[in-house]
Design a protein around this nucleic acid. Sequence first.
DNA 1: CGCTAGGTTGAATACGCTCAAAGATCGTGG
DNA 2: CCACGATCTTTGAGCGTATTCAACCTAGCG
Lengths: 273, 273
Amino acid sequence: MKQNAQIDSIHSNPDVLPLIRKILYVQPLNAEEINALNKLHNHPHSFDELTTVINYGAVHKKSYIVTEGWAYRYYDLNDGSRQIINFYLPGDIISPYALVMPKTPYCVDSITCLKVCQFEPEELIELFVTQPKLGLIYGWLLGREDSMMADQIVRNGRRSAYKSVAHLLLEIHHRLKIVGLAEEKNGVFPMPIAQHYLSDALGLSLVHINRTLRKLRVNKLIDVTHKTVSLLDIDELKKITEYNGYYLDQIKNINAIIENNTIDNSQETTHVA
Amino acid sequence: MKQNAQIDSIHSNPDVLPLIRKILYVQPLNAEEINALNKLHNHPHSFDELTTVINYGAVHKKSYIVTEGWAYRYYDLNDGSRQIINFYLPGDIISPYALVMPKTPYCVDSITCLKVCQFEPEELIELFVTQPKLGLIYGWLLGREDSMMADQIVRNGRRSAYKSVAHLLLEIHHRLKIVGLAEEKNGVFPMPIAQHYLSDALGLSLVHINRTLRKLRVNKLIDVTHKTVSLLDIDELKKITEYNGYYLDQIKNINAIIENNTIDNSQETTHVA
DNA sequence: CGCTAGGTTGAATACGCTCAAAGATCGTGG
DNA sequence: CCACGATCTTTGAGCGTATTCAACCTAGCG
């Protein structure tokens, strides 16, 4: 699967953009593809902590690749309650459907100071045309989001508070790990969010989240201090929650798909420096 | 927006395939595009009621366009409970990410006798290349699913049983309506599912679903008889549930996107009869 | 040092669950 | 045509998980 020494060095380089790290975790890329992905990062932008990134019903908006910090997508109800749909971590794409959806039926707010790179629908279309493989990888990113939202539905629908909290922590740990922001072995990762975010994500009350975290702590499964989470027994946590995140890391052999099909790769270098 | 008399007649023709109806509801298509979509329906297949369409962890599977009947995607937990992620109605695509995802982390079962049309990843890629507009529309279909899953998360997380049930019924009514399977005005539509499907979809017990339906009936908001639902006061239901399905019907002006971009439309007729 | 946001705990309550059993409906076969 | 079984629906009663309300504690920051 390894392509050349250059790619290996990119892969082990901690400065590689998180989106690229995420993709390289499952799929080798050649220099040209990495170059095209870098190009998508040409318009960096920053949001302060706790600010609006996308407003409910916003039109004509762009997509964003998160390069640093946390954000979340949510929906507010009339009774004052809030449901968080998902969290955005480095390497995630905010509003990936901006290309075709004219209005967003949700809000996105930053949690920490948030660094993103904007891209326009036009850039995405150009990417799909010039780099068909990256088009398919974009589809994989969408499918991955779909799987995570399905998990979120299962958590909110059929899991106890205890299992929901543990399951979400495992997912976040996994997602941070593959972009190099969490330790593999000891399960330590930064979680710069207050407990009310967990409560709004899992559809539970703040008080109950607090009690549930304590229970996990008492059972020596996790430790939370100073915005840092430690998963003390990952195997046991996975067992309890029936956690099965393998599908987050799986992608079909993209090269094989491309080669077996009618895509005209002669265009591939036209728009890339 | 209307293109020609031919399209109008297709639009009002009750025999038009539901997927095409769904798209025409928001976006005009020319004859060539309709032809390409028809071609995607070249491999019909039937499943009996209550049979497995896709098994947990299945590999190398195809995608399916539902043309008739109901199905659902779900996840089973070790304690015997089940969470339904979403329902598939005519015009929906089962497993739209089969193109890139090697294993499905969920199951799909038919509820009624289910008629589908299979298509292979290869056909999808060919479609994207020869009909870029349909590629974007495929993206819109995915974005629509994303919105509906977000709604499902909100229902399961922060809505009361009463509001959840009403909200789901409104969504199903809306989805059936745009493929011509529900009446606009009187809110009548067929719902060939037992109450336990609602309970597994909404993360509630069967008993509680039953009581909640009764409450909605007593309040003269719905009526359920013989696998048929009547929404007796759609405006009131929408008000109670804060239902806002407008985004399901919105799509950017695809023609404008295409024209403003670098897609080479000269290929457009290459692979189409 | 005092303010503020976030974390922790207790007590009472409520929404939804489980267990249990009795009706309704429908297909099938006697 | 009715009887029967299977599946689905409906209702009651008691229970439990998670909620709300309220208070107090802690940490970080000006």
